[in-house]
């Protein structure tokens, strides 16, 4: 039995894609797949530990948690790196993706492919944050992801990581003034009801790495390995389309429910976060250069 685990609830594109993966892989390999959604097998970091230890076999995970194991994955979230989702996909499906897979294998994990998590935007309880100055001093919740923390530190905000499950209470309690997430996540957790001011900053791209335990992967026959890769690619194509479409359909839906949208001054934000590139280029000069080139920034 193959356990495919992730943290999303029904209705989220990740859930639908995981269901698809289970169906495809089972049909192709003849093995039974146990689809375990909604973080029933632990949160993202715990699922990575479990996959590496062979407790579960595959997880559709998050870029932030994954970057705590393979720091290079975090570079995909460099501020304003990809101009749109298709550019990001092209980079991930190419050499950069292969390089990340090589690094992951050192930590006992095998990357099967990259699904999508969308581009992130900021929501605030009481105001729009169209310019970098509006973010200065803002108490903002981020995922436990070093890149996101670095971006908001560069902007002079006051970021702190908190588990996703505790976010609504923390926002209601005024521990944070706002948070940042793709629209899909904001909508599915009804965060726009607590933080109705949505600024379309698009400050950061996030993938959903689909990761297997290396020991399980190595024990598979070549045919079964191909089944796993194909299932990841096929379910991923569907998932990416869903994310792309949902970003367009969600905005009017959220506006109807009282969310107030505004555009951000992207150029000003880009200038204010340029130092993040310099900081990361110190540790990863080649990869930062390669990403910039691949994304068409240079």
């Amino acid at each position: 039995e193959v356990i495919f685990a992730h943290g999303s609830n029904p209705g989220n594109p990740r859930y639908t894609a995981a269901e698809k993966w289970a169906e495809l892989y089972a049909a192709c390999s003849g093995e039974e797949v146990n689809h375990a959604p909604a973080a029933t097998m632990g949160d993202d970091a715990e699922m990575l530990t479990s996959a590496a230890a062979g407790v579960i076999q595959v997880t559709a995970n998050s870029q932030g948690a994954m970057s705590q194991v393979v720091p290079e994955v975090g570079l995909l979230g460099l501020p304003f790196l990809f101009k749109d989702l298709p550019t990001a996909w092209e980079v991930l499906d190419g050499e950069v993706g292969e390089m990340i897979d090589t690094r992951a294998q050192n930590a006992g994990l095998k990357v099967l492919g990259f699904w999508d998590n969308g581009i992130r935007n900021i929501t605030h309880v009481s105001k729009h944050v169209a310019a970098p100055e509006d973010v200065k001093g803002m108490k903002i919740r981020t995922p436990p992801d070093p890149m996101t923390l670095a971006i908001f530190e560069a902007l002079g905000a006051n970021p702190a990581p908190l588990a996703w499950s505790e976010l609504p209470t923390a926002l209601q309690s005024g521990v944070f003034e706002g948070q940042e997430n793709p629209l899909t996540n904001i909508y599915s957790a009804k965060l726009h009801e607590i933080t109705p001011y949505v600024t379309m900053t698009g400050h950061k791209y996030e993938s959903t790495p689909v990761v297997a335990g290396l020991s399980w992967w190595s024990g598979l026959s070549e045919d079964a390995q191909k089944c796993a890769l194909d299932a990841t690619a096929e379910a991923g194509e569907m998932q990416r389309q869903m994310v792309l479409e949902s970003d367009e359909t969600l905005r009017p839906k959220m506006e109807e429910e009282g969310a107030k949208f505004a555009e951000a001054d992207t150029a000003a934000f880009q200038a204010a976060t340029a130092s993040v590139y310099d900081d990361y280029a110190e540790d990863y000069p080649d990869l930062v250069a390669a990403l910039k080139a691949a994304a068409g920034l240079e």
């Binding site: 632990g42 715990e46 530990t49 479990s50 230890a53 062979g54 407790v55």
Partner: peptide, 8 residues
């Protein structure tokens, strides 16, 4: 695998 116990 019993390792799941440690994780949980």
């Amino acid at each position: 695998p019993l390792a799941v116990m440690v994780q949980r």
